[in-house]
């Protein structure tokens, strides 16, 4: 039971059930609860701070995974280039007045340049 992964059941409907439960329901339940309880929890409350920190760290873990163990063609690039491109993108973002566009474009430019050099 506990091993029910995305490809565990060989039927056309199983992936959709998986996506509906683990994707749609697990996600939207919070929005529905948010409407139901709107007006109680405030952004200043202690619980809100804790929930937000845990959620941020979890997403940070996802990001680290995407860089350290990437899927598809990104895996062909060296770890040094992946980390370097992200680091330079972050530095450009900070220098460019925290502009996400500047950071993304700089990081991507470094990555493409590095790949063309075969790194």
């Amino acid at each position: 039971m506990s091993e029910l992964s995305f490809r565990a059941i060989d039927a056309w409907w199983w992936p959709w059930v998986f996506l509906a439960i683990a994707g749609w329901f697990a996600n939207d339940v919070w929005r529905l609860l948010g409407v139901a309880f709107s007006g109680r929890l405030t952004e200043e409350s202690r619980l809100f701070t804790i929930v937000k920190a845990v959620a941020t760290a979890l997403v940070a873990g996802v990001i680290a995974k995407l860089i350290l163990w990437p899927s598809g063609d990104l895996a062909e690039a060296s770890l040094a280039l992946r980390l370097g491109a992200v680091a330079i993108g972050f530095a450009a973002f900070r220098l460019g007045g925290e502009s996400v566009a500047i950071g993304v474009i700089s990081g991507e430019a470094v990555f493409l340049g590095g790949r063309l050099l075969g790194w």
Partner: peptide
């Protein structure tokens, strides 16, 4: 996704 609840509220 838990952050979505306080945002919605």
């Amino acid at each position: 996704a838990a952050r979505l609840m306080p945002m919605t509220m």
